[in-house]
Nucleic acid binder design. Structure first.
Lengths: 144, 144
DNA sequence: TATTGTTATACTCTATAACTATA
DNA sequence: TATAGTTATAGAGTATAACAATA
């Protein structure tokens, strides 16, 4: 391999940036950005109610960013902060019904985007791609 | 599909961000960032010597960013700016020998990263992934 | 007047560090 | 003293807009 542009790493980087931009454009109407969706998805996927520090570690971002994201989501009525009575320093975030609805809409937007970008691919290749990407995400320790 | 995290769009976004970070860490020693590599690769791939505006359009970034990237690469001796005698407003960028060597090293770094992230994948799946990503990039109008 | 490259400026994103309250 | 969350601050990255040179 002597062409950078043909490596998996480089292509994932450029395609990823493009996908993030396009996804961001699609969810802009909901006043959400990809990171907000990531946080909401982590809340739904999480087995137990998550503290903000837990979430920061899970998403691989700074705790202060979780604060900003949670502030925004709370203003939208998508999440609720509840003080843990056992340890009053702790706040657990939970997804509201409205949050679940928003998340559902975002998932639909992402699925539409999937159809759009993979339109020229045969169905089998499309499924294989999703499968492989999932395995890579799992291997890299990303939420999946 | 009712889970955002399992969509191709979302996975490409998160994996892409991760790959870009890891690639950036590997080429930091050369005093380069992924965008610099993208510019150099565009220069080598381009059939004709490219003006800075051409490059901006090809890479999908603002012209002012090309100036900053080219400034940096020029300081490293990786590219040369040559005034077009036919139209003295124009400056064509060309890759120097040193630039080609740097690009080669970056390609090697990207290939290593490929091996690392796809270590757990069977060879056939790995090849299929590279192929599919190339097709997606082509379909999205990205340099490939 | 239009276009190329450049410079100046501003904005977005995110991390680091300081601070508050609880433990 | 240590920890959860928050706030304040700063830096990177990049775009927009103003500007200079050339056409």
């Amino acid at each position: 391999m002597n062409d950078v542009k043909q490596t998996i790493a480089f292509r994932l980087g450029t395609l990823g940036a493009l996908m993030q931009d396009r996804f961001a454009a699609r969810i802009e109407a909901y006043d959400l950005k990809p990171k907000h969706v990531g946080l909401m998805a982590a809340l739904r996927g999480g087995a137990t109610a998550a503290s903000q520090q837990d979430l920061a570690a899970r998403l691989g971002v700074a705790p202060s960013l979780v604060v900003a994201l949670a502030d925004h989501l709370e203003r939208l009525g998508a999440v609720e902060r509840v003080r843990d009575p056992d340890d009053r320093r702790r706040q657990t975030l939970t997804l509201t019904e409205r949050g679940a609805a928003l998340l559902h809409d975002c998932a639909a937007a992402a699925a539409e985007l999937d159809d759009e970008i993979t339109a020229s691919l045969p169905e089998s290749e499309r499924l294989a791609l999703r499968d492989t990407l999932g395995r890579l995400a799992a291997g890299a320790g990303l939420p999946h």
